[in-house]
């Protein structure tokens, strides 16, 4: 492309120009692949159809004309209110659209909002009951998966949607990775639970579990924190002192009368003075 014989036009440039993605701007470019994997699972993968029935197959034939059409399932757009992150809605969300209540009347706007109820879920691995806001669909999904932990661990992040569910999933995975310390009072039960759930650990590495369930800003601040901890500034006075000592050593001059006991042994008031100390110390 960069050959000099080609006349570069704006059109060609526009074709080669690629818009920078989310992971290529600023500090986000330092996010590890483990987080990228989670992000893909959460935001890029297509969630299961909850509010519509997808058509099966690739093609369909018009009964009247015999024409063949491809089947294109365009999902119904969903609205995710902030409250979705405080509950576990089982893939349901708010649908915004119109109703055509009568053929001769104008369509009217309508919101289809899921029924929410507060109930209790039991987590085997965490050994607790939790009070959470759920829908009927969540409860039937929990029943279909034979338990809350199985439901969370088997379902990909794009179907769990809510931050609460993802945080719980992360906590469960961490707990499993550590060998269920919450059941330490009963080693037999601890072993049983670990055996039951350990299959889920095989699809994650410890690093992936560490980066699982973080929101975008949490991940960025985590990167920033790690970076800050790695590049901790060293005071220049330490650097200069080290340099000086090395220089002196290379010149063959022995450092003497610098140790603390020698200073205290001398009677001169000048050597006892510390110009950087507090007033009463001096």
């Amino acid at each position: 492309m960069a050959s000099s014989r080609l006349q570069v036009t704006a059109r060609q440039l526009s074709k080669t120009f690629k818009k920078k993605g989310r992971f290529e701007i600023g500090i986000a470019s330092e996010l590890p692949p483990a987080y990228k994997k989670f992000w893909r699972e959460w935001k890029v993968l297509k969630p299961a159809a909850v509010h519509f029935v997808p058509q099966e197959g690739k093609w369909k034939r018009d009964e009247l004309t015999g024409e063949t059409y491809p089947i294109q399932n365009i999902p119904i757009p969903l609205k995710f209110p902030a409250e979705i992150n405080e509950g576990i809605w089982g893939g349901e969300a708010v649908v915004k659209g119109f109703q055509k209540r009568d053929d001769r009347r104008r369509r009217v706007p309508h919101y289809w909002v899921p029924v929410l109820k507060r109930t209790v879920v039991r987590s085997e691995v965490l050994n607790t009951h939790l009070s959470v806001t759920v829908t009927d669909r969540t409860i039937s999904l929990i029943n279909d998966h034979y338990g809350f932990d199985h439901y969370l661990l088997k379902t990909p992040a794009c179907d769990l949607v809510s931050v609460l569910a993802l945080k719980l999933k992360k906590q469960i995975l961490t707990e499993l990775m550590n060998g269920c310390p919450r059941h330490a009072y009963d080693p037999k039960k601890q072993m049983e639970i670990y055996e039951e759930y350990k299959t889920y650990l095989s699809s994650y590495t410890p690093e992936e579990i560490e980066w699982y369930g973080l929101t975008w800003y949490e991940a960025l601040s985590k990167v920033a924190k790690l970076k800050e901890a790695a590049n901790k500034p060293i005071p220049l006075k330490n650097v200069y002192r080290k340099n000086l000592v090395e220089k002196l050593k290379s010149a063959g001059i022995e450092s003497k009368s610098s140790s603390a006991d020698e200073i205290s042994a001398t009677t001169s008031w000048l050597s006892k003075m510390n110009p950087f100390g507090k007033k009463d110390e001096a």
């Binding site: 509010h51 519509f52 029935v53 119904i76 349901e92 649908v95 659209g97 109703q99 055509k100 209540r101 009568d102 053929d103 309508h110 289809w112 909002v113 899921p114 029924v115 829908t135 009927d136 669909r137």
Partner: peptide
């Protein structure tokens, strides 16, 4: 069927008209 006379808050399966 044309029904939607009142708002109900349930799990809905919808279809584009």
């Amino acid at each position: 069927p044309t029904m939607f006379s009142q708002q109900t808050r349930n799990t809905f399966i919808l279809r584009r008209r």
